[in-house]
Write a protein that binds this DNA or RNA. Structure first.
Length: 319
DNA sequence: TGACAGGGGGTGT
DNA sequence: ACACCCCCTGTC
């Protein structure tokens, strides 16, 4: 347990507007931050989201006139949030460059989720999240991340606000302590954690992959940063050399953690929807990925996210 | 209320 | 193709 560097904070800043050319509605906001790109957002109250990334702790809500508003408990979070949400780019303009004019289904997906964004998360954290993702649903991945942070990540904040309940494991264990917020462990920190303890964070067989990846990254300083800076194809080629990282995970890391919108992750959902909607029955994941990049173009990853959001909504409707 | 299957956003062999 | 882990969810 890492306890050094604790910062006691007085509380949250006032709510302030975050300028977005195309703000999301409530459902699109949820889909953006809690729809499978990121795994560290939770509903703190009705229509208020609490999220963590890097050393930041922030809240989001939709205010009057549908304005997105933020409040932070950490320093420097406004600029970091702007980067995280890729706020300088207009989601509608980006979507408009997709080939929706010749693709009716894509047009429906875009219309259904106006303002959907691709996040720009910290690269290392994104890698950790998607190493956890194999055959796991979002709710389970979020549990793994919460446990990794609570047990092995440095404390980033301790605050006594009453509008946010569970800061992590402490509350679940019924202790009296004020909830602390922890950042995710760095790769160097993970490298120092025995694999058995990682398993204790519900990682299952992923513990071995994460442990070995951590050892490699710790032994090769700068490797992650160099990888993030490389062109898409080279960065992906490097990522897939890590244990537990295949094509799908590498594409997710580059799409959601490096702003490489040409990355087109193909999971079982996309495989199914592409088969059904684009007549690709029997195609293999690599073939569907090639089709996706060719059909959707340089922002194929954004198209993928619209299709994914549509399928998730469809699945919810049928239950 | 509690046990019991079934299946899960992949990767490696 | 199948093992890898084991938690979540729905069901009886």
């Amino acid at each position: 347990m890492v306890e050094s560097g604790a910062v006691n904070l007085k509380g949250w800043t006032d709510w302030r507007p975050l300028a977005l050319a195309t703000p999301p509605n409530s459902a699109v906001l949820a889909e953006t931050i809690d729809g499978g790109q990121a795994f560290r957002w939770q509903r703190a109250a009705d229509e208020i989201w609490l999220g963590q990334w890097d050393r930041h702790l922030a809240r989001l809500r939709l205010g009057v006139a549908g304005r997105l508003e933020w409040s932070a408990a950490t320093a420097g979070t406004e600029a970091a949030l702007s980067t995280y949400l890729d706020a300088d780019r207009d989601a509608r303009e980006l979507a408009d460059t997709l080939p929706w004019r010749s693709d009716v289904h894509l047009a429906h997906c875009i219309a259904a989720f106006p303002g959907l964004r691709i996040l720009r998360q910290p690269f290392g954290e994104t890698l950790l999240g998607f190493l956890c993702s194999a055959t796991k649903q979002i709710v389970q991945i979020k549990q793994m991340m919460a446990l990794l942070a609570a047990r092995h990540g440095a404390v980033i904040a301790a605050e006594g606000a009453t509008d946010v309940k569970d800061g992590g494991e402490d509350a679940r264990m019924g202790r009296w302590s004020v909830p602390n917020y922890h950042r995710l462990p760095t790769w160097t920190e993970i490298a120092a954690v025995p694999e058995a303890e990682l398993r204790g964070c519900l990682l299952g067989f992923r513990a071995r992959y994460i442990h070995q990846t951590a050892l490699f990254i710790a032994a090769n300083p700068g490797w992650l940063e160099e990888t993030e800076a490389l062109p898409y194809a080279e960065a992906k080629a490097r990522l897939v050399t890590l244990p537990g990282v295949g094509e799908k995970v590498a594409d997710c890391v580059l799409l959601f953690g490096a702003g490489r919108l040409e990355a087109f992750p193909v999971d079982v959902w996309i495989l199914k929807t592409m088969a059904a909607r684009y007549g690709l029955e029997g195609w293999k994941p690599a073939q569907v990925a090639q089709f996706g990049r060719a059909h959707f173009g340089p922002l194929a990853g954004l198209a993928q996210q619209y299709l994914f959001a549509w399928e998730r909504a469809e699945a919810r409707r049928s239950t």
